[in-house]
Design a protein around this nucleic acid. Structure first.
Lengths: 224, 224
DNA sequence: TAGATTGTTAATCGATTAACAATC
DNA sequence: TAGATTGTTAATCGATTAACAATC
């Protein structure tokens, strides 16, 4: 739906400001904000200024204000940010209030590790079923062959894939056809989306380990 | 050791150029280069130009040449890069030829997943022992209490920690005392290094999942 | 009201890209 | 030699930081 905002721009009824699209750098910081706010919440902190939060997070207050302002006016001059409100807003932005259901295609160690991470432990995302892997917790487990029959009814939007690289790439069109819109890929191999609407996060679990190895080596080389 | 390079700068015997320190952005791309080069190697490709590699990696040739030139003159004008040589060089930069031995403090799902990632499967890093967790593969397993006694002789430089957050932070000084210089932290909680020489990589396994959730939601909002 | 702190605009800094001389 | 392609310098672009007027 397009609207002509030029007409009476000054008295625009629409409350939403036209904002610049969030940059990739800003988006990548959202999980971190979410984490710190969850922490503050559990400590019972009700409000926080950008300066105080910046100090805790070891970033600049400027960056925090810029980042948040891209998504909305979440603070209040002279007061700061309401922790509960801001946490809720960021949860919403991250899609954690949308009730996403997640299915596991294969059940490798990485998938199991993810299941015990905060996002699933807190129920921000809902683990719904396993296909082609051992049952975990209360999730029903099906064979890969049952995917086309069972998956649509589950209403899942996100799939966590830990199969072989070939099997993973091969199952993407079926996943798309069954309503999956995002894929978390733990196969150590780049997956290509079968259509433009599907989002894929390729995870290379060993990257932090390689960077650590680099750092351990690099610190030795400081001669002067 | 400091040297005065001003004297006879033109005929400097020293082969190593004085280069600018690699930026964090460049360093973070090294694992990706390493991955693509390993792939090319396994395909039997002997040489590649920055342009050809750029096309495969969906980056600019300029960036590749800039990134690599920070670490050395690895290419040759009119030829490109020797794949085997470049792969070896990057392996070296990443510390994968230093024979790092890795111990596992706790053995959670994330640690197990890491053990089946390329870096360990290929033996670029060597899994040496487990403390406070189930034995895996051929690694000997010890209790946490045995750490001070057994760890020094193992000669490990890197530790992968998957304990509770408190236990993890508490064991860092002991690890440092036993020769550990880098820690990969899978506890979902920020760990602080006990001294300036220890490097820590805090891994938040659910971050890619949160970003995926964001992307799945954000794509819905494109109204016009 | 006065003090505090935001959202935003302007200034700085760093990273990416383009261009090209050096050279294999 | 001629063609190809690097390493590097200069130009562009984007992200971070600083400053401050708006305002609670």
């Amino acid at each position: 739906m397009k609207r002509i905002d030029q007409v009476k721009g000054t008295f625009d009824q629409n409350k939403e400001k036209r904002r610049t699209a969030p940059s990739a750098s800003t988006v990548k910081r959202l999980p971190r904000y979410h984490r710190y706010l969850a922490r503050l919440l559990s400590e019972g902190t009700l409000r926080i200024s950008s300066t105080a939060l910046a100090e805790r997070m070891h970033v600049t207050a400027s960056q925090i204000r810029q980042d948040l302002a891209v998504f909305g006016d979440f603070g209040q001059q002279g007061y700061g940010y309401n922790v509960r409100y801001l946490h809720h807003k960021i949860s919403r932005i991250l899609g954690l209030t949308a009730g996403h259901r997640v299915v596991f295609i294969g059940m490798g160690d990485a998938a199991r590790a993810l299941l015990s991470s905060p996002v699933f432990v807190r129920g921000d995302l809902q683990a719904a079923a396993v296909f082609g892997g051992d049952a975990v917790g209360e999730m029903p487990a099906y064979s890969l062959a049952d995917m086309e029959r069972e998956l649509p009814a589950i209403g899942a939007t996100i799939a966590v894939v830990s199969l072989s690289a070939e099997a993973a790439q091969a199952c993407l069109p079926t996943l798309a056809a069954c309503g999956i819109r995002g894929v978390l890929n733990y196969t150590h191999t780049h997956l290509t989306p079968p259509d433009e609407t599907m989002k894929i996060q390729n995870v290379y679990l060993d990257e932090p380990c390689l960077l650590l190895s680099y750092q351990v080596g690099a610190s030795e080389e400081n001669e002067d």
